[in-house]
Structure formats: structure tokens, C-alpha cells
Design a binder for these strands. Structure first.
Lengths: 150, 150
DNA sequence: ATAACTGCAAACGTTTTGCCAGCAT
DNA sequence: ATGCTGGCAAAACGTTTGCAGTTAT
């Protein structure tokens, strides 16, 4: 397993975790910061980053590294896949359980020791499906994944 | 579907593509820059970025957005999966063909319209094997000898 | 006393952009 | 002339870090 480091559940840490668990939007660090700031106006962005890191390392949160520019965090630590809207970057959970055998199918294809996989889906969220006029929703710069372009 | 933009195959563009296709290492923009610089010493990093972007959009190259900090590019545009070493970031190809049915399995799980998937594997390359990496934590910028940090 | 922690600001590495000159159409 | 394009430098972006003071053990 992993040697978990000991840490104090400070006020900041606890609030960050609470808000992260409340939020089901897979927020970026900055979004967590903005949310937490409503309860702790003097918290700093650096603290949020440091704590999201600690929480992720300790297993209390998940660090998502889906494409796009900004890292996202998830307060729900159970295994599940994600869809990301290629247009606005919004992320949603999928209920499908981790697919077994994926890794075995690929073992032997390289000289790497396979220890896990990452499967994300790309899609269009209800809002972006119409692809019409750009709403006020271009927070992401450009989302391009494997040859598709937003 | 996608209105592909027209572009000129300039000298810089061509050399970047050539070198990218020669390189089988899934280089970062900077690595492409360094390589191309041997043939065109006055090329600028900005030009490399702009052209990798254009080439990716046009389908002549692939923009890989596997986790980690730096974006990688691939001159081989055929469909294949990748393994990334969680410790050093090295990327290798897998010969496995795209798995069909993955997207169908997940359609209906959300209100997103699924248009694709991204499957990457995590692993340890021959060099990094036996050095104990934590699969839940993407590689750090600074790799510490004994793997400990706060 | 010590070690973890915070806020703040500065630093960092990567990627993008503005400007202007050059070249193809 | 119009519109891509390239070089250069500066800006922007998300994230990390150094510092000095604070808090919990």
C-alpha cells in the first residue's frame, strides 16, 4: 500500500474537504478556492492547492487529470469513469464500474509494467449540444483530444 | 463535420512534421523545438507551438493530453493507445486496437452525448521498475531519490 | 521545542499572444 | 492588397515554493 503521512485536520483542510464533497462538479483548484472563500475569506490559493494535494495523497480526495488545462478534483473517491464536455470542459460521472481485463489485454504489448489505466469519455453536455452561439462559457482555452477539436 | 482550415505547408511546418514523424518518443513541444533547431537554428519556440497546433488540428499529428505537466505530440496518427510511466513520464505505444463497445457501454449513464473515449495506461518503464511509484500520484516534477516528501 | 500549517507574494515551467516584417496568393 | 506566417519578446496561465509568523502537540 501507500505510506500515508500523518497530517492534522486543520480548519482550512476540513472546510476544503467539506466543500469538495458537497460540490459534485469536479471543480478545479480555483473553483474550490472561490467556494471555500465564502466561508473563509482570508484563505489563500496556495493553501487550497497544498491541501488538495494532501487530501489526494491521503486518499480523501481524487486528483483528476483529464485532458484540458486545469486539474480537477473529486470529493468522491470511489472508482468511476468520467465524461468531459469537449466544448465547455464540464465533467460528469458515469456509473459504469471499472472494466476488468482492460489491462490484461494490453500486457505484453510493451516492456512497461502495466499498473493501471485511465479511461475518460469525451462528449457534449446538454448545454453545448446545440453548438450554436458561444454562451458565456469559454473558460477553457482549447479542448482538443486525440485529433478532435472543439 | 469539421471544417478543416486551409494552411500552407511552409518550410518550418514541413520540418516540424518530418521530425515529429521521425521521433517515436512522443516528444513535448520543447523536445520538438530542440530537434528542429538542429536543422533550423533560428526557428522560435512559438512557431513550433503554433505549428504543432495547426498540424494537430489538420489531422497530420496527434496532440496527446495524457496526465503529467507537459503536452506531448505524436506524428503517428493511426489509432493506438499509450502507456505512460508514472514515474518518469516516458510514453510508449501499445499495439492494441481501439476497443469497440466501450462507448456504447456507457451511453445512457449520463445526459452527455458520448463522442469518443480516451484510454491510457499507467505503468512503469523498464528503467523505473523497482523504484516504487505511487499509482495514485502522477509524477512529480522533482523526482526524489527516496521518494519522500511532505 | 518541534513539526505541521497558514497567508502572502514571488517564482516557476509551459503555453499563448501581440507586434511587425515577410512572403504567397 | 489580403491574409497566413515567422521570429521575438512579453504576457498569461495554472501551479508550486520560500518566507515568516502561527498553531497544535
Amino acid at each position: 500500500m501507500k505510506p500515508k503521512k500523518r497530517f492534522r485536520m486543520t480548519r482550512q483542510r476540513r472546510v476544503i474537504l467539506e466543500e469538495l464533497q458537497k460540490l459534485h462538479s469536479h471543480p478545479t483548484a480555483d473553483e474550490v478556492y472561490e467556494t471555500v472563500r465564502k466561508r473563509m475569506p482570508r484563505i489563500s490559493l496556495g493553501t487550497v492547492y497544498r491541501n488538495l494535494e494532501v487530501l489526494s495523497r491521503s486518499g480523501l480526495a481524487l486528483r483528476l487529470d483529464l485532458g484540458g488545462t486545469r486539474r480537477r478534483f473529486d470529493g468522491t473517491t470511489s472508482d468511476h469513469y468520467h465524461v468531459r464536455c469537449v466544448r465547455c470542459g464540464k465533467v460528469a460521472d458515469l456509473s459504469a464500474e471499472p472494466i476488468p481485463g482492460l489491462e490484461a489485454a494490453v500486457r505484453g504489448d510493451s516492456d512497461f509494467e502495466i499498473i493501471g489505466h485511465r479511461l475518460d469519455f469525451l462528449g457534449l453536455c446538454p448545454n453545448c449540444r446545440g453548438k450554436g452561439a458561444d454562451p458565456h462559457v469559454p473558460p477553457m482555452k482549447k479542448v482538443i483530444a486525440n485529433g478532435e477539436q472543439a
